[in-house]
Write a protein that binds this DNA or RNA. Structure first.
Lengths: 140, 140
DNA sequence: TATTGTTATACTCTATAACTATA
DNA sequence: TATAGTTATAGAGTATAACAATA
């Protein structure tokens, strides 16, 4: 049990970039974007949001979120509702089709990552499993 | 030391996506793309490559790599050389400016990640440090 | 006036299809 | 013909600036 192990941020950064790239390239051909997936997950997890809230939460501009929601709407993954108390506000919601896509996407990615994991030693897998909660806290 | 800890691929996938997103949003405004960075790193690590090799290694199409190299060239981060034995071949190389950019980028990201790490407990940091080599092997 | 959201415009990044040049 | 690479075209995804509607 190491008391104070040095963690090299540059190495972790590169590892995260490479892992993400690997995961992305194992995607189904028509996978949605990172922001689209993150937005749908948020809507699933936390319920309907205003457009402005979504843009801030996802770290994109308001126009970018307008367009993202338009794409999600066009694909039937999200829809909009009016706010009864403020005529300016748009409430974005995930649709059942959007929820199904998230479920399917999780299954595909799990499968892909599982395929990568079989090439890893049990020890390595155990180390990653042990660090996963810490990584989740780091990712906030 | 757990003998057989279950590692949930879906959780790891989401953690990687969120970490990547976090790292990306902490970037300097004019950061190069994931593929551009990965390509430059490869050229720095392994020396000059053909365009086709780069495209295959980075998991993008040949036209996409043509355009990426054109952008890198325009920004002075890479250049092209002819192959003396095959007139069709283009050899792509990282320039000194490209190497400097990689160095600077590593420093910036390290700083950003370090800022995130101060909010993490020493135990969590140690767990991640312990898992880092395994993550690097997973990312191949 | 301030807030919420959209429209206009431009650039990066990617893909597929069609093409050119060399082997 | 096959291989290496480019050009043409289209769409996603992002940004900033200007605008419209509501509060």
């Amino acid at each position: 049990m190491p008391a104070k192990t040095a963690l090299d941020p540059a190495r972790l950064t590169v590892a995260v970039e490479r892992l993400f790239s690997l995961l992305r390239h194992g995607n189904p051909p028509n996978d949605i974007s990172l922001t689209a997936a993150s937005t749908l997950r948020r809507l699933e997890r936390e319920g309907p949001h205003r457009l402005t809230e979504l843009a801030a939460a996802e770290g994109v501009t308001q126009p970018a979120m307008t367009q993202l929601v338009q794409r999600l709407e066009r694909e039937g993954l999200a829809d909009r509702a009016a706010d009864s108390t403020d005529g300016r506000v748009v409430l974005v919601r995930v649709t059942p089709a959007g929820q199904e896509l998230l479920t399917r996407r999780r299954a595909v990615r799990a499968e892909h990552l599982a395929a990568l994991l079989v090439e890893l030693s049990d020890d390595d897998e155990a180390l990653i499993a042990a660090a996963l909660p810490a990584l989740e806290r780091l990712a906030k």
